[in-house]
C-alpha cells in the first residue's frame, strides 16, 4: 500500500509540474488528467474510495471535458505554442519560484512541527459519507446547490453571444460589454 502512495505521489507532482510548464493546452490537460488520476489513487489508498471515484468522474471526466471543449472551441493552433514560448522565458520563473519556495517551507514547517501519525487506510464507506453529508452538513449541501445554480446562471449568461466575436470591437477598448 505504501509503495502505491509514494509512486502515485511522485507521479502526481511530476504530472502537475508538467501541467504548468506545458506549452500546448491539450498536452497540459492530459498531464492534468494524469495528475488527477494519481491523486485519485492516493484517495483510494487513504480509504476514501467514494471520493476517488468522484475525483475521476467529476474532475477527470466532466471538468476535463469542459476544458477540452473550450480548447476546441477556441481552435488554438500551433501559433499558440510559439506565443507560450515567448510568454515564458526562463527568468519569469524566478520570482514566483522563490515565493512558492518560501510558502512551501513555511507550510512544511507547520506540518512537521505537529506530531506525526500513521494513516491506516481503513475505509470510510460511501454510506458514512452520505450520512454525514445529508445529516450534519445538510446546510452545506443546500449552499453548494445554490452555488451550482449561480454558476449555471452565470455560465449561461456569459455564454450567450450578444456581440459576435468578429465584430468584437477590440479597438474600442474601455467599453466592455
Amino acid at each position: 500500500m505504501n509503495a502505491v502512495f509514494y509512486i502515485s505521489a511522485g507521479v502526481a507532482v511530476l504530472a502537475t509540474v508538467m501541467v504548468i510548464v506545458a506549452k500546448n493546452a491539450i498536452h497540459g490537460l492530459l498531464s492534468l488528467l494524469v495528475s488527477l488520476l494519481a491523486v485519485s489513487l492516493i484517495f483510494y489508498v487513504m480509504g476514501a474510495p467514494f471520493i476517488a471515484a468522484l475525483e475521476i468522474i467529476i474532475y477527470g471526466g466532466a471538468i476535463m471535458v469542459l476544458f477540452i471543449f473550450v480548447v476546441m472551441l477556441l481552435n488554438l493552433g500551433p501559433a499558440m505554442v510559439d506565443q507560450e514560448r515567448q510568454w515564458l522565458p526562463a527568468r519569469i520563473w524566478i520570482g514566483p519560484g522563490i515565493l512558492a519556495l518560501v510558502l512551501v517551507v513555511e507550510m512544511g514547517y507547520v506540518i512537521v512541527r505537529r506530531p506525526n501519525a500513521g494513516i491506516s487506510g481503513s475505509v470510510v464507506t460511501p454510506q458514512e459519507v452520505g450520512l454525514a453529508l445529508f445529516g450534519l452538513y445538510l446546510l452545506g449541501v443546500e449552499l453548494a446547490s445554490m452555488l451550482l445554480l449561480v454558476g449555471l446562471v452565470g455560465a449561461y449568461y456569459l455564454g450567450q453571444r450578444r456581440i459576435p466575436p468578429e465584430k468584437g470591437p477590440v479597438a474600442q477598448r474601455g467599453r466592455l460589454p
Binding site: G95, P96, L99, A100, V102, L103, E106, M107, Y109, V110, R113
Partner: peptide
Amino acid sequence: AVGIVIGAVLLLGLVV
C-alpha cells in the same frame, strides 16, 4: 495574485 501570495506568506510566517 502575487499580492495575495505575499500576504499569505507574511501572515503564515507571523503565525509560524
